[in-house]
Amino acid sequence: MNDIDKIDRAILNALQADGRLSNARLAELVGLSETPCARRLRRLEQDGYIERYRAMLSRQSLGFGVVAFVLVRFAVHDRTLADRFEREVCAIERILSCHNVSGSADYLLQIVARDLDDYGTFLRDQLRSLPGVTAVESSLSLREVKADGRLPVS
Score class of each variant (00 low, 15 high):
49 Y>H: 14
92 I>K: 01
89 V>G: 00
92 I>D: 00
25 R>A: 13
143 R>H: 07
111 I>C: 02
37 C>M: 10
27 A>E: 04
22 S>D: 02
86 E>F: 00
59 R>Q: 02
95 I>V: 05
135 A>I: 08
84 R>Q: 11
139 S>P: 10
111 I>Q: 06
26 L>G: 09
138 S>R: 01
96 L>H: 05
102 S>Y: 12
57 L>Y: 13
92 I>C: 05
25 R>K: 15
113 A>M: 03
115 D>W: 01
34 E>A: 04
89 V>Q: 01
90 C>Y: 11
62 L>K: 08
17 A>C: 08
70 V>F: 00
8 D>W: 05
110 Q>C: 15
61 S>F: 08
72 V>Q: 05
140 L>H: 11
78 D>A: 05
36 P>K: 04
127 L>T: 02
14 A>S: 14
21 L>G: 13
68 A>C: 15
133 V>G: 01
28 E>A: 13
19 G>E: 10
113 A>I: 00
117 D>K: 00
40 R>V: 06
16 Q>A: 12
121 T>F: 07
87 R>D: 15
16 Q>P: 13
51 E>L: 15
143 R>C: 13
41 L>I: 05
128 R>W: 08
47 D>G: 10
37 C>N: 12
104 S>N: 09
56 M>T: 07
72 V>I: 15
72 V>N: 07
120 G>F: 15
113 A>H: 01
90 C>S: 11
133 V>C: 01
117 D>M: 00
108 L>Q: 03
131 P>I: 02
37 C>K: 03
83 D>F: 02
137 E>A: 10
113 A>K: 00
47 D>R: 12
14 A>M: 08
42 R>E: 14
38 A>H: 02
135 A>S: 09
115 D>R: 05
54 R>H: 09
53 Y>E: 00
133 V>S: 01
121 T>Y: 11
27 A>M: 02
56 M>N: 11
108 L>I: 03
31 G>L: 15
17 A>H: 15
99 H>M: 06
112 V>D: 01
123 L>H: 00
46 Q>G: 12
127 L>V: 02
12 L>E: 03
50 I>T: 13
38 A>I: 03
134 T>N: 02
106 D>H: 04
8 D>N: 10
144 E>M: 12
140 L>S: 07
51 E>P: 01
47 D>K: 12
87 R>K: 12
19 G>F: 08
60 Q>A: 15
